[in-house]
Write a protein that binds this DNA or RNA. Structure first.
Length: 476
RNA sequence: GGCGCGUUCGUCUAGGGGUUAGGACGUCGGCCUCUCAAGCCGGAAACACGGGUUCGAUUCCCGUACGCGCUACCA
């Protein structure tokens, strides 16, 4: 068995999206599983749409995910000589021919053809031009495209995922492999690149399934070894349509800035179309490398589901040590609470990671650990602190807190409960207003934990402020 | 239109000639509880349709419908 060599070959014409990441992931996992190589090839042969910034964004994303590629990046735009050589060879061996038909004319013919040109095929006008005529037109400087001659027969190949695929050659039009401006087209270029890169397994989206027979034709005609193919089903948006800009945060960087962990995203993505033979759902990358194989890949397109992503994200957060989470948060936002004590931050992260789904949520839902509330949730204020009576209760309770010498979760809880018992009220009558006073919002971690972390001075100060501002009496 | 591919709960999926069609997310209900989460327990929820083959088909075959892809001098 030859050592496995695979590639991920995005074109830098847009942001990397979920589908692209999954293709990269499956390639990477396959390579790692077989101790092979994973290459990155930038398909930048479309100078109009290709952009340097997308190229950089793609590389950044892959690195962020930890999907590191082997060797230097291959740029198609720098490999023109090989494509030209291949085209020349096909011309010389008579496997391809020059076509002098102008694009405009072909376009017009197509439009005039029945059924709006859907059935239109290249009529073979230039297929059998004599050598003399070709020379004459060449000498006149007529531009020409190069088309592949399609032999009779049937192309069949065994897709690692879809199984046996057979297509009659007669279904394939004599397609262009070199444009009249001299630039090679996609199907030619992929084949030449994959050959020279020594690619053994072509793993890509199933939108290429029907391109494969054309490419096999080129492999044959060029005398190249044909690699194995594996086509991955598409990922669709919630509307069951192809993933696109319309689906909001489709560009993968957006997920990053929303505070998802890369390994959580990969974990989610790997289950879109694949499953191990276990009921385990949460995996590390290493585990995936060990378990991954192509046999269990689905043929059906999968729909992206944010709910499940969130769940997986939460699971990964719980498993991750607070230190690691904090440094991820720092990558997201270096400014976040940077003046605060590190241990204090770690404690907060430790508490919050169990209850939240993303890094961003940790940042946005933790303000009360640092800042005194500037306002109180109105609904909760009405419900939990509806009358002056609460103020008296809080006042008394504050007096009790003042004299506490040790400020700990356990003591705070027993103190509060004792206090309520003495008064014959349920402890929630006090807990809720205190929570509101301390955080301004109705929910958060355990009240006693919060109190301990905030410390005596802060708690008393916030309670005092609340006494001044609550209850809210303004009608609305 | 032609060709290729696909179709199991809302979603991701397991399964495969005889199963109470399994799990997960979500959802609903309960427990726990200082709130929100988490956790635990329980419920509802699927084999696209029509024909074969067969004692039996969700599973195999053929159609139909629907969806996706390709059908470009895009990649």
């Amino acid at each position: 068995m030859k050592p496995v060599r695979v590639r991920f070959a995005p074109s830098p014409t847009g942001e990397l999206h979920l589908g692209g990441v999954r293709t990269a992931l499956f390639n990477w996992l396959f390579a790692k599983h077989h101790k092979g190589k994973f290459f990155l090839r930038i398909e930048d042969t479309d100078p109009v749409r290709s952009r340097k910034e997308y190229e950089e964004q793609i590389c950044d994303s892959l690195k962020w995910f930890g999907l590191q590629w082997d060797g230097p990046i291959v740029f198609q735009s720098q490999r023109l000589v090989d494509y030209k050589a291949a085209i020349r060879k096909l011309l010389e061996t008579g496997k391809a021919f020059r076509c002098f038909c102008s694009p405009d004319k072909l376009e017009k013919d197509r439009k005039q053809a029945p059924k709006g040109g859907r059935d239109y095929r290249y009529p073979g006008t230039c297929k059998n031009l004599s050598l003399e005529e070709q020379k004459r037109r060449l000498n006149q400087g007529e531009p020409f495209a190069v088309r592949l001659k399609i032999p009779r027969g049937v192309i069949s190949f065994n897709d690692q995922i879809y199984g046996n695929i057979r297509v009659k050659n007669s279904e394939i039009d004599s397609f262009i492999i070199s444009r009249s401006n001299g630039s090679p087209t996609y199907n030619l270029v992929v084949v030449v690149d994959d050959h020279f890169m020594g690619i053994t397994h072509v793993i890509r989206g199933d939108d290429h399934l029907t391109n494969t027979p054309k490419q096999i034709l080129i492999y044959k005609v060029l005398g190249f070894d044909i690699p194995k193919f594996a086509h991955l089903p598409m990922i669709l948006g919630p509307d069951k349509r192809r993933l696109s800009k319309r689906h909001g945060a489709t560009g993968i960087q957006a997920f990053r800035w929303q505070g998802y962990l890369p390994q959580a995203l990969l974990n989610y993505l790997v289950f879109l179309g694949w499953n191990p033979d276990t009921e385990q759902e949460i995996f590390t990358l290493d585990e995936l490398v060990r378990k991954f194989h192509l046999q269990q890949v689905q043929k059906k397109a999968a729909i992206y589901d944010e709910k499940k992503l969130n769940w997986i994200s939460g699971q990964h957060m719980v498993q991750m040590p607070a230190e690691a989470l904090l440094s991820r948060i720092r990558e997201l936002n270096p400014e976040w609470r940077k003046e605060e004590n590190e241990d204090y931050l770690l404690k907060i992260v430790e508490i919050q990671k169990k209850r939240l789904k993303t890094l961003s949520e940790i940042m946005t839902h933790s303000n009360f650990f640092f800042d005194d509330p500037t306002s109180y949730d109105l609904k909760t204020a009405r419900k939990r602190w509806g009358s002056e009576g609460v103020n008296f209760l809080i006042q008394d309770f504050m007096a009790r807190l003042e004299i506490m010498e040790e400020w700990s979760v356990g003591l705070l809880e027993s103190e509060l409960r004792k206090f309520c018992e003495e008064r014959g009220i349920s402890s929630s009558k006090l807990i809720h207003p205190v929570r509101l006073a301390l955080s301004g919002v109705p929910h958060g971690p355990s009240l006693f934990l919060m109190m301990e972390m905030l410390g005596k001075v802060t708690c008393l100060r916030r309670l005092k402020t609340a006494l001044e501002k609550l209850p809210i009496t303004v009608e609305s």
